[in-house]
Design a protein around this nucleic acid. Structure first.
Lengths: 340, 340
DNA sequence: CCTGGAAACGTAACCGATAACGATTGCAGT
DNA sequence: ACTGCAATCGTTATCGGTTACGTTTCCAGG
């Protein structure tokens, strides 16, 4: 059902109502200084013609688009969850959302993607952006809030309490009796990766277990990166009885490698992840993991960005959200359960 | 890292390069009629100043925004899948995507939501829209393609082969030995709901099984709508041995009700859904369902909309995609397997 | 040397709205 | 009737580009 007639503009309305465009603009925006009679005339002309104001023209004039951007490296289930939260926060707020994601195939990462997207959007299409797991520092004329920011960044951001989350995860394993616990780290530049590793070390230290550097593999959050690391850990003569991976994507990969190598989970090996992506519930066995509500991360980031744009933000610019341990069936006491 | 300096405009570039804005525009758009020397000057001025053309101003002048819209009633996993496909199709196409979804709570459906969103977006912010499962007919100045369109609509659309899908689903049940098969229908106004019911009837007819109207419940695709219907079917003295629900959301609800009523699945009752949403894989037992690739639906819809906007579409304006049966563990032969 | 025409570039109107500013009107107070 | 202040409304510049059109430059051909 396409009607190809020309769009009806504000001056059309003005002509029909017998007033100037300025008056129509006042009526449309509910500004002061128009008599009730005129308002009625204009209103009637508006819906007689079916007038809708041009968002583009308005944006140009106001130098404010009322559109926020979400830029992500890729659109995975992680991003989808965040998106839901963002949309919830933006509903009925007058802001629209535009989303930007690389859709390159895995591996074709091009450094600086966030920056490219941002400079294109900022101040021209969007009033501000949310960046999900940035790769580096970001410059922008308009407000930007990062979800899972770069380490050491002072920019506005929202992230989970990664340290505490990692501690509970490792304590869960320790509580089950594990002492040789492997760790697969995330991309070093992210604050989350750093904190999760810190949590791993802290939990071990608290229990008087020495950290064995050879049990730590350096991944980058990309699931693929975990495969060779898991292989190395599991093919040692003295493999760990449990592995804590810094993300669910990597943990699921560990599960795959374990199966392939003949390890039964959780019989021979316990695995814990971090994130609680939907897939973790549906895998077999279900993955024990640390839940960081990605919905909540998105929600808070959007709430913050919104008020940053309107200039009414007074709360701290770095938000940390709590995490919780979700115990499923990928963890159990080690076979030779050395009771403490 | 927010820099509050004013945006650099085309006339800034013009001044620095010592030319007029018209010339800068020509260079930016690669138009004919500017000497190589001038091009070089302008180019250098552009990246000396870090100029980015204003998408808003360009859109206003060109009356073309290069933004497409996705409007959906709610943002569920169904929508997320569609979105992925859309984004894939739009990547590197020069089109951006803006998404619109009601985030009203369930039940607060307000008739005509798509129309409201569309008139707001069309021709002002977007060059065209994709509407997911519309509720009624749609009028728009710009192209619109529907995913899962209204019944009888001649507008551009993409949908699954719902008839064939339903037939295979019911044939699967028949093949297992079921004869009393309940059906929970979807929202009547949608073509998909209609075809799925047709498929149900056709499959039964083909096997010489009479359709019992009392075994048909009239739902509306809203999962909640299925609960009372399932209850009625299962509390009869002669409950069906299998239920085919027109959507996974409703089928999962059937599973819930069955559990609550003490039916074991698939022991006492087999259940089949339609859609293959992610949750269907992770439920216990896994839901046997008809897969319609929502990713693919989104991809095709975006591809079509894109060329509709640029006016280069020559293929048929109604696309039908194949479906496939995914057998999981919610179906089995009936207890009193009356071998045919 | 003159003419013609294409190439190169500037001028200015325009896209559709907003807002500063000025002009007009209405009405109360004196 | 006259002043003064508000309320009401129109004029016009402007947002940042695009493009029709006009002007100037330059060079080949006569």
């Amino acid at each position: 059902m396409i009607e190809a007639n020309a769009p009806v503009t504000m001056s059309d309305v003005a002509r029909v109502a017998g007033v100037s465009t300025a008056t129509v603009s006042r009526v449309v925006n509910g500004h002061y200084g128009v008599s009730a009679r005129t308002v009625a005339q204009v209103r009637s002309a508006i819906d007689q013609l079916g007038y809708e104001s041009s968002l583009v023209a308005t944006s140009l004039r106001r130098s404010r688009t009322n559109v926020l951007g979400l830029v992500a490296h890729s659109f995975q289930s992680y991003t989808a969850e965040v998106l839901k939260g963002v949309m919830k926060a933006l509903s009925r707020s007058g802001f629209d959302l535009i989303i930007y994601a690389n859709s390159d195939l895995y591996g074709s990462y091009s450094e600086g993607w966030e920056q490219r997207h941002l400079t294109r959007l900022s101040g021209t299409l969007t009033d501000g952006c949310i960046v999900v797991t940035p790769w580096g520092d970001i410059r922008s004329r308009t407000p930007v809030v990062a979800i899972d920011p770069v380490r050491g960044s002072a920019a506005p951001s929202v992230m989970a309490d990664n340290l505490a989350g990692a501690v509970t995860a490792v304590e869960h394993l320790l509580g089950l009796g594990h002492r040789r616990i492997g760790f697969i780290a995330g991309r070093d530049s992210l604050a989350s990766a750093w904190s999760r590793e810190e949590g791993y070390r802290a939990a071990l230290a608290n229990s008087g277990v020495a950290v064995d550097p050879t049990l730590i593999g350096r991944g980058d959050f990309n699931p693929e990166s975990a495969a060779p690391l898991a292989r190395v850990l599991l093919q040692r003569p003295d493999p760990p009885s449990a592995i804590f991976a810094a993300s669910d994507g990597m943990a699921l990969k560990v599960l795959e490698v374990a199966r392939e190598l003949g390890f039964s989970v959780p019989g021979d090996l316990s695995v814990v992840g971090f994130d609680n992506i939907p897939e973790s519930a549906s895998t077999e066995p279900g993955l024990t993991t640390v839940d960081q509500s990605m919905y909540q991360l998105g929600y808070e980031a959007a709430r913050m960005l919104k008020s940053l744009v309107t200039g009414e933000w007074d709360e701290p610019r770095q938000i940390v959200l709590p995490t919780s341990l979700v115990v499923r069936s990928s963890t159990a006491p080690p076979k030779s359960a050395a009771r403490p």
